[in-house]
């Protein structure tokens, strides 16, 4: 009797997730295979004659291959931001954890502030404009680095405290300076956090909508999330293409999720439970 109840409960839970969590994705999937007229009905049924391939081709070539350019831009943005973020935050976390002094409380406060305070938009544009970096990919990369800094540095600082100081001392006695100690010994030891930051930041930066909207406007340098936004106004009557676009830009996070599921979950909880 207990067993039946247990099974009933589990089946109920699975059915519930199908209704609540699968249907939106199923909805996107079926509608991206329809023609414009059929998709405008917004139903859940399969396409009467499915045309996935045609829709994909249309979306890809639309507006002078905007989606392709967007994928290139987003990839460059994500890879470059993460590379800079990792090196700079690991260096900062290394010093901030090892060297505590009068300035430490101030540094900690500024880092905490960065986690909480929303960035001031127009003044940031003003600063970027003054530096000649507004509406450039480099400018947006620096913004992603600055906004990702507090979280990454906290993770590095936390992990650094688990690396014994004896490691440093041994290297210093062997004659290693700070640079050799850090790049030769510490950075390789930080590899688990680095992996976590790579996976988490790649999802965040790839999915970022607000920052490209403000700091990289215009259709020349568009990123993937903005293509969706641009298509939303362009394809008012062609939902099928809008859904195809959603489908295509959801593939990278889906792949990351399938490969790194455990790491993502572990990283997110590590960063939040004791920050």
């Amino acid at each position: 009797m207990r067993k039946i109840r247990q099974w009933g409960f589990e089946i109920g839970a699975v059915l519930f997730t199908i209704v609540v969590f699968w249907i939106p994705f199923y909805f996107i999937l079926v509608n991206s295979g329809k023609d414009a007229k059929e998709s405008s009905l917004l139903t859940m049924s399969w396409a009467s004659n499915s045309q996935y391939w045609e829709n994909i081709k249309t979306v890809v070539v639309a507006r002078d291959f905007m989606l392709v350019r967007a994928f290139i831009n987003s990839t460059v943005l994500t890879v470059a931001s993460i590379a800079i973020l990792i090196v700079l935050c690991a260096m900062a976390g290394y010093v901030l954890q090892r060297r505590t002094g009068k300035l430490s409380p101030l540094f900690n406060f500024l880092i905490l502030a960065g986690l909480i305070i929303p960035p001031a938009i127009v003044p940031t544009i003003w600063v970027m404009d003054g530096l000649g970096l507004f509406k450039t990919l480099i400018g947006l990369i620096l913004i992603e680095v600055a906004l990702g800094f507090p979280f990454a540095v906290l993770l590095y600082k936390g992990f650094m405290s688990g690396i014994p100081r004896e490691v440093d001392e041994a290297a210093v006695i062997d004659g290693a300076g700070g640079i050799r100690l850090f790049f030769g010994i510490i950075l390789p030891l930080l590899q688990p956090v680095t992996a976590t930051i790579i996976v988490l930041s790649s999802v965040t930066i790839f999915n970022d909508f607000t920052n490209p909207l403000y700091f990289l406007p215009g259709s020349d340098n568009v990123t993937v999330q903005l293509t969706l936004y641009n298509f939303q106004s362009q394809y008012v009557t062609q939902y099928n293409l809008l859904f195809t676009n959603i489908l295509l830009i959801t593939i990278p996070p889906l792949l990351l999720f399938i490969i790194f599921n455990k790491r993502i979950v572990a990283g997110m909880t590590a960063g939040s439970v004791k920050g």
């Binding site: 260096m91 290394y94 010093v95 901030l96 003044p123 940031t124 530096l131 700070g178």
Partner: peptide
């Protein structure tokens, strides 16, 4: 040796970017 090993130079690049792009605009706002 301590100061050289854990030099604030390591902190500087991140601090500059964070200051110019996040702290400064926040103050200016």
């Amino acid at each position: 040796i301590f100061k050289r090993t854990y030099s604030y130079w390591f902190l500087l690049p991140a601090a500059i970017i964070y200051f110019i792009i996040f702290i400064l605009p926040t103050i200016m706002s």
